[in-house]
Amino acid sequence: MQKLALFDLDNTLIDRLDAFRRWVGEFVEQRGLRDQDAAWMIRLDDDGALPMDTFFAAVRERFGLAEPVGQLWATYRARLPELVVCPYEVLAALDRLRAVGWQVAIVTNGMADNQKGKIQRTGLAEHVDGWAISDAEGVRKPDIRLFEIAAARCGAQLSEGGWVIGDDPEKDIVGGCRAGLSTVWIDRGLPWTVEGLKPDHTVADVVSAMALLLAEGSHR
């Protein structure tokens, strides 16, 4: 199997939920809203599961905002990458993988400006070989075509094998299995919910996932 590792971005390489909560705090303060309004927004977001156009339509209606949904969403996309952090230990682990011959790419659903902003502002752009963003490519995980694009940007192809690492059971793990790749699920303390299929490995965080890949690679 080739040394190809395709990583999810949000809540895998970076803590999207932490950044979102900080954005909510700013939004509430700027708009003169209450703590219970912040809690409502965090519940509504559902850890990123709710489409953001739907999220901002609900926010606009609840708080009687004048800005169109598209403007609210665009302002959010410009700000969130500034709030996201990629820990040093994650960047260092990516460097260790690449130093021993792994090709590394990011495969992420989302708007191109938002996701590319996160990749660039966190420094991840300098620690991976490429990325594929659903909005830019016109296809979303779990569709295997997004994984194919990311692999190609590493000079690889899915038929030679590799790994998908992510926190979403459907988008990352089911998608990776459909692509014929091995999978590592970052469980974030949650139970596995997909019947009839399980990841090859389950870990608590992405640094543990990369340590596992390093061990796997050393056996070949």
Rank of each mutant, 00 (worst) to 15 (best):
I42A: 08
Q115V: 10
V69I: 14
A99H: 07
R62Y: 05
H219T: 14
D113N: 11
I106P: 00
H201V: 12
L83Q: 07
A57C: 04
Q36L: 08
D135R: 05
D167W: 03
A74C: 11
W185S: 03
L50H: 01
R77W: 12
L213I: 12
V24Q: 03
K3Y: 09
Q103D: 13
F20I: 08
A156M: 09
L50D: 00
F63M: 07
D205K: 04
D46C: 11
L33P: 04
G123E: 05
L80E: 01
G161P: 07
P51H: 13
R21D: 08
A151Q: 08
G175A: 01
A112W: 15
L212R: 14
L181C: 03
G130F: 11
E195M: 11
A78Q: 15
D18R: 15
R79C: 04
L158M: 04
T54W: 15
L50T: 06
A66R: 15
V206Q: 00
F7D: 04
D8N: 09
E67R: 03
L124P: 01
G48Y: 02
G123N: 07
D172I: 05
R153C: 12
L91I: 14
I165N: 00
D45M: 05
E126G: 08
A19W: 00
G110N: 02
G110Y: 03
I186K: 01
D53F: 09
H127K: 12
T12W: 05
P142W: 01
A215P: 07
M41N: 00
G189W: 08
